[in-house]
C-alpha cells in the first residue's frame, strides 16, 4: 500500500477547478472549509452559482478586501465577505432547514476518509479527544449532492479512500463524487468508478494508493479542466 510514487500530483487549485465544473448553473452550493473554499474562484464563465453559508447568508459573496471587513458579514469559516446584490440573511434554524430539506443542491466537503460505500469521516481525529462537527453532519445528510475535495493520501501516504472508514463518521453513504490530487472517482451502484486520472498517472498507480477497489471507467481519461 505504501508504494512510493513521486510523480507530481495536482495542486489544491486544480482540485478546486475540477470540482467547480460540477456545480450546476443556478444551483445553491455550500462550500466547506479548506480546499472546498477555493472552489468559488474557479466557477466556469457563464455559470452562476449561489452560495449558502451556515453563518446565515444566502448568495454569500467573495472574501472582503482588506480595510472593507464588516464583523456582521462573515462566511461559515468566520472570514469576512463582500456584500453582493440579492443576498438574504436568515437564522440558523432556517439555514439548516435549507440544508436538511434538500434545498441545497451541492456541498463540497474536505475529508479525512471516504469509504467504498460513500461514507465520509471528516470531523474528528480520535487522538484529540474532541472534535468540531459544525455543520458537516447536516450537510452530509441533507445536501442533494456531496462532493469531496481532498488529497488522495494523508501525510504518511496512507490512502484516504478506504474500504471502511476507521475514523469517526460524519455521514453514511452520502458521497457522490471524490476529486483528489490524483483522480476523479464517482460512486455508483456498482461501487467506486475511476473516471479521470491526473496527467502522467495510470489507473493502476491510482489504485495502488487507494484502499478500496476501483472500477475503471471504460471512458477513463485524463483530468478534464
Amino acid at each position: 500500500m505504501t508504494h512510493e510514487n513521486d510523480k507530481p500530483r495536482l495542486d489544491r487549485e486544480i482540485i478546486a477547478m475540477r470540482v467547480a465544473q460540477e456545480l450546476p448553473d443556478g444551483g445553491y452550493v455550500n462550500l466547506g472549509i479548506g480546499i472546498p473554499t477555493l472552489v468559488s474562484s474557479f466557477v466556469p464563465e457563464g455559470r452562476t452559482v449561489f452560495y449558502h453559508s451556515e453563518s446565515g447568508v444566502l448568495n454569500c459573496g467573495p472574501l472582503a478586501d482588506e480595510g472593507e471587513e464588516d464583523i456582521d458579514l462573515i462566511n461559515a469559516g468566520g472570514q469576512f465577505v463582500k456584500p453582493v446584490p440579492g443576498m438574504a440573511f436568515f437564522n440558523s434554524a432556517d439555514g439548516f432547514a435549507m440544508i436538511r430539506g434538500g434545498h441545497v443542491d451541492v456541498t463540497v466537503l474536505g475529508a479525512h476518509q471516504v469509504s467504498a460505500k460513500g461514507d465520509i469521516a471528516n470531523w474528528m481525529l480520535p487522538q484529540r479527544g474532541v472534535g468540531n462537527v459544525g455543520g458537516a453532519m447536516d450537510l452530509a445528510a441533507g445536501a442533494k449532492d456531496v462532493i469531496v475535495a481532498m488529497e488522495h493520501t494523508d501525510r504518511e501516504n496512507h490512502p484516504k479512500i478506504v474500504q471502511v472508514c476507521d475514523l469517526p463518521l460524519t455521514g453514511k453513504e452520502c458521497v457522490s463524487l471524490i476529486v483528489t490530487d490524483l483522480a476523479v472517482i464517482r460512486r455508483t451502484t456498482e461501487g467506486l468508478v475511476l473516471e479521470e486520472v491526473a496527467p502522467g498517472w495510470t489507473a493502476e498507480e491510482v489504485q495502488e494508493l487507494t484502499g478500496a477497489r476501483l472500477t475503471v471507467s471504460p471512458s477513463l481519461r485524463e483530468f478534464q479542466l
Partner: peptide, 30 residues
Amino acid sequence: MAGRVSIAEVSLVHEPGGIDPEAVITPGIF
C-alpha cells in the same frame, strides 16, 4: 419551504439588490 416546486405570484419584481437583505422573509432558495 415545503413545496418541491414553489411558485410566487408578486406585484413587483426587482433586480437582485432591489430588496433589503435584512427584510427578506422567504429566501430565494425556497
